[in-house]
Design a protein around this nucleic acid. Sequence first.
DNA 1: TGATGAATGATTGTTGACAATCATCAAAGG
DNA 2: CCTTTGATGATTGTCAACAATCATTCATCA
Lengths: 228, 228
Amino acid sequence: MSARPQLKIVKKSLAELAAERLRAAILAGELPPGSRLVETALAEEIGASRGTIRAALSELERDRLVTCTRFSAWAVATLDAQRLWEIYTLRATIESGAARLLAERVTDDDVKAVREAERDLDAAERGAAGADRLACDLAFHATIVQRCGNRLLIDAYASIADQVRWVYAVSEQRSPARIDLVAWHAPLSDAICRGDGDAAASLAFALCMRSLDGDLGESAQKEAEAQA
Amino acid sequence: MSARPQLKIVKKSLAELAAERLRAAILAGELPPGSRLVETALAEEIGASRGTIRAALSELERDRLVTCTRFSAWAVATLDAQRLWEIYTLRATIESGAARLLAERVTDDDVKAVREAERDLDAAERGAAGADRLACDLAFHATIVQRCGNRLLIDAYASIADQVRWVYAVSEQRSPARIDLVAWHAPLSDAICRGDGDAAASLAFALCMRSLDGDLGESAQKEAEAQA
DNA sequence: TGATGAATGATTGTTGACAATCATCAAAGG
DNA sequence: CCTTTGATGATTGTCAACAATCATTCATCA
């Protein structure tokens, strides 16, 4: 069997297409938190029937991007300080578990991949602009999760990563704090590569929680005060 | 505001009712893994229309109890050794994160609750039958997660706990290995109560993974061999 | 003035019919 | 005998209409 270009086309149902559109619109901030979503209106705009839209909304509901109150209304989910904290701690939990798993079963390939991600991070730190730095940062974390070998964890991470991106998009503070990327990430790489599960878990958790304090400290602080 | 009995009645849609029924049937093993689920047949049996059944099936799909292949068929999900490992490591990850969170923010109330769950465990160890032992074991773990203060974590745990119960129901080995409950759980309680997040996370993870080896080692082993 | 209750419009919940797609199997051709 | 092709039945995907429910408004009355 020779290597072929990828020919297979992924067929998607209308509901999936609709969900994609809506997800993109929400993540882009076009539909701000709290926006009312009316099935008939969306059906008109998107060009599908209500049942189809309904399926799409249900999919987004399970990803916690929209909420539904019975017989009343769909709406884009809202973000308060509590939810923000929950999102980041869930992310920290998943990454922490993935890092522990990876460390406990680390292979040579894994070491190579992690070290490479670390090098990219170093390169980004030297020159690149904020957006690239953020991309490399996320790529580093994604590498760890992707290689942990647990599809359930990978899926859970994808879902929560969506919400993290959403938080970035919605909050005014678009670019993460200019921290010393390599200095913070290197200990985690080392722990994984030497197979130290406990250390990897601890460092991964701390690193994620640091993002909460650093990137979003201001707006979260503001919100918390507003609520008090 | 005085304390009142819970008066609110929860109205459920037909789709939710149907999902409940199906979930119960699957968890009880009435619909064994791999069973084909046909929308029209289910609609007939349950007494709702296809669209309603479809919504119910979608809900179960999100919880990974059923799978759907496009234009073809719904089916009860299957359990192989890999998936078994994934379920248990995801559970370990979530419990581990919850334990870390709880330890880092532990209050007097938390200490009291954890110690009480530990005492119940001790009592169960002395006298009770297998089922009660299992119940107390699960209650202890649930206590930790419930008190971590993160609704996302709690929900994620509820979903994965369903799957753990399912594994128990489906595998022949119904009762967990007769381990020394208190001896295994006490270090975790201690770590949480003294606020040692790293230790709590490590112990919680190890405890869950121990369940995989202990309770289900045989059947998992068998399956793994069958696949090879 | 404030509470109560009925009418109303808007929105979701549910249904059955029709269209699109897939898995199966038998026949044709080499 | 094996592979390919076409027909067929079964099953999911989509749709538009109807029913149930909710939020709002406004008139009524103590």
